[in-house]
Design a protein around this nucleic acid. Structure first.
Lengths: 223, 223
DNA sequence: GTCTATATAGGGATAGAC
DNA sequence: GTCTATCCCTATATAGAC
């Protein structure tokens, strides 16, 4: 693709800033990262940084937008129903990857919401959609006679799926400071979520899941 | 109780500072609360505040100690086993109350750990003990033939109990910004945790639990 | 678009009087 | 123990040259 030497570098700089900022936020937490640090890390001046993003919260807001966009693309639409356990597995894996990439957001959730009300609404929407996706998993498997549960149970289960999926990585890194959580942590997260569903599966599906799980976990923890 | 007018006011001031700081941290997040704000809120000078706590992190650390102490007193000892579902219910309720009182900690978990390694270790220990307490619930009910699950299932279940118990309140307040989460939120949290255990209970215990749950939830949401 | 230099604010922390 | 006054530093943000 041809690149206009006038405009293309600008776009790339903007994106480079976003990338580096995301990395720093994830490492040290948004409140602990100063604009000067970001600029230094990029090898540009603070002034230049402010040319691209006038204020720090514009930068943070842009990252939040990226996150919401990525998760929005991943989360299935409103009426969606899961087909089978393998699909659920794969979907969960993609979602946990996205959560890991933007894990800084989960550090100061209420702080973000307190400072910027629009951001809060945005996050609340994503959370709500997550619960709905979880419902889609349960209802889909129920409609295909793979899962048996009452309405009340599905309600509770959907909530618990969302909580474990969203917070598993935070939980793991809090529990094991200075351990690299990324790879095995995500596999384990998917596993934990599916173990929520397992008790409601019919015996054959449950066995199938357990076999999948063991294989998956050993592969991830070995590699 | 007789109070020495020389020493008693000092002790009370120190505690008043801790109380007000805790409230502000919970409302606005630790990084967003300045020492001057704390002093203003208390109606004392910044200098006086620094007389009691030389540096801000000493203040934060003191609050963390309070939290660990309170939770430590609540969490059952290592070899503990649950007797019945009612006890579990009550225990969970007390724990969620403590988590709610110190909810600011759950905003910037990794930030806290990054800044102060001792604090991180401290929190990791509490998390670990929470998982062990969850195991104590499962194993206790299993030993009394109220619960049926394999070792693998109990492992996964213990982790999930801990995650939901620890993060439920964060989840709820992120999902419903500007709603008062305290009362109904805690009841709902206990309910969600017990719904994790329910599928592994024997039929009679499960029914018993469901009846308890409905009653409890309606009471809390009504009042 | 990028730099250097600078303004301005705010927060943490100290000194010394009362 | 408490106050007032003040210092120092860091961080955000701006101005203007290149």
């Amino acid at each position: 693709m041809p690149q206009n030497p006038k405009s293309a570098p600008g776009r790339r700089t903007r994106q480079r800033i976003l990338d580096v900022t995301l990395a720093l936020y994830n490492e040290q937490g948004e409140p602990n990262v100063s604009t000067s640090l970001i600029a230094a890390e990029l090898g540009i001046s603070a002034g230049n940084l402010h040319y691209h993003f006038r204020r720090k919260d514009e930068l943070s807001a842009a990252l939040l937008e990226q996150f919401v966009a990525e998760l929005d693309a991943l989360l299935p639409p409103a009426g969606w129903r899961a087909d089978n356990v393998e699909d659920v597995w794969f979907l969960l894996h993609l979602i946990l990857e996205a959560l890991w990439r933007y894990r800084f957001l989960f550090r100061d959730l209420s702080g973000i919401m307190a400072r910027d009300r629009r951001a809060g609404t945005r996050l609340a929407t994503v959370f709500e959609r997550s619960v709905q996706a979880a419902r889609g998993i349960c209802l889909g498997l129920a409609e295909r006679d793979q899962l048996v549960a009452t309405g009340v149970e599905i309600d509770a289960l959907s909530n618990n799926i969302a909580v474990v999926a969203l917070y598993w990585l935070s939980f793991e890194s809090a529990r094991h400071p200075r351990r690299d959580v990324a790879g095995a942590g995500m596999a384990r997260g998917v596993y934990q979520v599916l173990m929520l569903v397992a008790p409601f599966l019919k015996p054959e599906g449950r066995l199938h899941l357990e076999r999948l799980a063991q294989e998956y976990l050993s592969r991830e923890e070995g590699g």
